[in-house]
């Protein structure tokens, strides 16, 4: 049996990522670093797009979920695994991907814990609760001596490679895309459009919102794991409100609820951050002015394609 087109595309992307990764030694180190950052941004933005874009919720706590995944997977690979099995090659090829998944799962669990009680809240209330949750995570991490507290966690193995980053990005996009493109999946958009009408059509809106939160926070956790094993160190202050905003801006820039637009925006914004680095202290000023202008002139996102006629397949 031939798998559907979307799955063939996924397998092809994974293969290409593996191939390029094998030759990553020849890529300029700076460029490689930016590319890896962009890949992680794709994971973050696509997963938040499921929550904020397609399901119409407004989460401002994505950095908090990312932090959970980052710390969990870093603790697994640096502390727990070497104790159990010593330093082996297995760490990079077996333990590391498993730790990404574990970080994602823990993050998803936290996602349910946050999501379930707060999903009755609408719009800006939900935004402020998720924001508060992100701050709570930060404060807890700052007070946990086991993970380095406010000093941060250092000495994390740098396992993150092009393959793992773009493999994860491909899986994230595939999962979000497949979830949405089914009869079940149109329900996410229906809930975003009109919750009362969705319920009246038999859609369990709470179930949809929680699914979005679980899947979204899972991949935020995975992105956190990738980030931890890319940088080699973690600090709670790196997962502040600003980081969440950065991801939200990617989703808005790409046009909420558009798969490819958000991917492009994630890459663009990562590149823009690099460009603005030369502006030094002015970086955030330019960034916030851009954000305001964007909202005043193009709240629907940068790339507005005419509404594509969806073939009814």
């Amino acid at each position: 049996m031939v798998p559907p087109k979307s799955q063939r595309l996924l397998i092809a992307t994974l293969a290409i990522a593996a191939l390029i990764s094998a030759f990553s030694g020849r890529i300029d180190a700076y460029l490689l670093d930016v590319a890896l950052g962009a890949g992680i941004s794709i994971v973050l933005a696509s997963s938040l797009n499921l929550i904020n874009g397609f399901t119409g919720q407004f989460s401002l706590g994505h950095a908090g979920f990312m932090a959970v995944g980052a710390y969990a997977s870093a603790m697994l690979t640096t502390t727990l695994a070497p104790k159990l099995m010593g330093q082996t090659e297995l760490l990079q090829w077996v333990v590391f991907p498993l730790s990404l998944v574990a970080g994602g799962l823990l993050s998803a669990l936290v996602g349910v814990a946050v999501g379930a009680p707060s999903l009755r809240l609408k719009g800006d209330y939900l935004a402020i609760v998720t924001l508060g949750f992100g701050e709570i995570i930060k404060v807890i991490l700052q007070n946990l001596d086991a993970v380095g507290g406010a000093r941060g966690l250092t000495g994390i193995h740098t396992h993150t490679s092009l393959f793992w980053v773009f493999g994860s990005a491909a899986v994230t996009v595939y999962v979000v895309w497949s979830l949405l493109n089914s009869t079940f999946g149109r329900g996410f958009v229906a809930v975003a459009d009109d919750e009362v009408a969705a319920e009246a059509m038999g859609l369990n809106s709470t179930h949809y919102k929680i699914t979005a939160f679980v899947v979204g926070s899972f991949f935020a956790g995975v992105a956190g794991g990738l980030y931890a094993h890319l940088k080699g160190y973690l600090n709670p202050s790196g997962f502040s409100f600003d980081k969440s905003i950065e991801i939200v801006v990617m989703v808005i820039l790409g046009g909420m609820g558009r798969h490819s637009g958000v991917i492009v925006a994630a890459v663009l914004l990562t590149a823009l951050t690099e460009v603005l680095r030369s502006f030094g202290n002015y970086r955030m000023i330019v960034y916030s002015v851009l954000l305001i202008i964007l909202m005043l002139t193009r709240p629907q996102g940068l790339f507005i394609w005419p509404l594509k006629k969806r073939k009814s397949t």
Binding site: F58, G123, D124, A127, D242, I245, V248, V249, I252, M284, I285, Y287, S288, V289, L291, I292, M295, L296, P299
Partner: peptide, 14 residues
């Protein structure tokens, strides 16, 4: 609401 909220965040950052 979302548009206004994000603008407000932008103003705050600025």
């Amino acid at each position: 609401t979302l548009t206004v909220l994000i603008t407000a965040i932008g103003v705050s950052l600025l």
